[in-house]
């Protein structure tokens, strides 16, 4: 129930921020539509911890800045390789261990690997808890296998070791 209210609140805030026209009619319409959509979501089952993981927001505020720094670091690394006349690539295809258990955690880890330039999640194997990852360099592959991101995603997921 709390989650449904949260969805309605998020939708209403989204409406207000995108609209910019604050007349009584438009604000009321926004509120009605937000509540109706949240109830519809409850009815069709997309208002759950997978569809609206609002309880992960605080953990995300700790995880995303770290991810942003990682993206900048590896983007600069890949740019160096691109601009190097010798093009020193050593592409790898390997399996990475996944500690995350919830759908939100697994999706976050897979997206984070892909978002970081130099590594792409090619396949997700939930049965063996591993990803098939393609990496531009051996160093990038070693970075993923070292598991720093894996640990941080597990913490983001709410499994404090």
């Amino acid at each position: 129930m709390l989650r449904t209210a949260s969805v309605a609140l998020f939708l209403f805030a989204f409406w207000l921020l995108l609209s910019g026209h604050y007349t009584v009619w438009l604000v009321t319409a926004g509120a009605v539509v937000s509540v109706a959509l949240a109830l519809l979501g409850l009815r069709f089952g997309f208002v759950d911890e997978e569809g609206h993981p609002s309880d992960r927001l605080l953990a995300g505020l700790r995880y995303w800045p770290w991810l942003a720094v990682e993206i900048v670091k590896s983007a600069i690394g890949v740019t160096r390789i691109i601009l190097d006349p010798k093009l020193p690539i050593s592409p790898q295809l390997f399996h990475a261990k996944v500690t995350a258990r919830t759908p939100v955690g697994v999706a976050t880890y897979a997206n984070s690997i892909t978002l970081t330039p130099g590594t792409i999640t090619v396949a997700i194997d939930r049965e063996h808890d591993r990803f098939l990852v393609h990496s531009l360099t051996k160093a990038g592959a070693d970075d993923v296998e070292a598991g720093e991101m894996d640990r941080r995603v597990a913490r983001f997921e709410g499994r404090d070791a």
Partner: peptide
């Protein structure tokens, strides 16, 4: 090539 493209896509 996808790795190269993701530099522009993200940063």
């Amino acid at each position: 090539r996808m790795h190269a493209a993701s530099v522009g896509d993200t940063l």
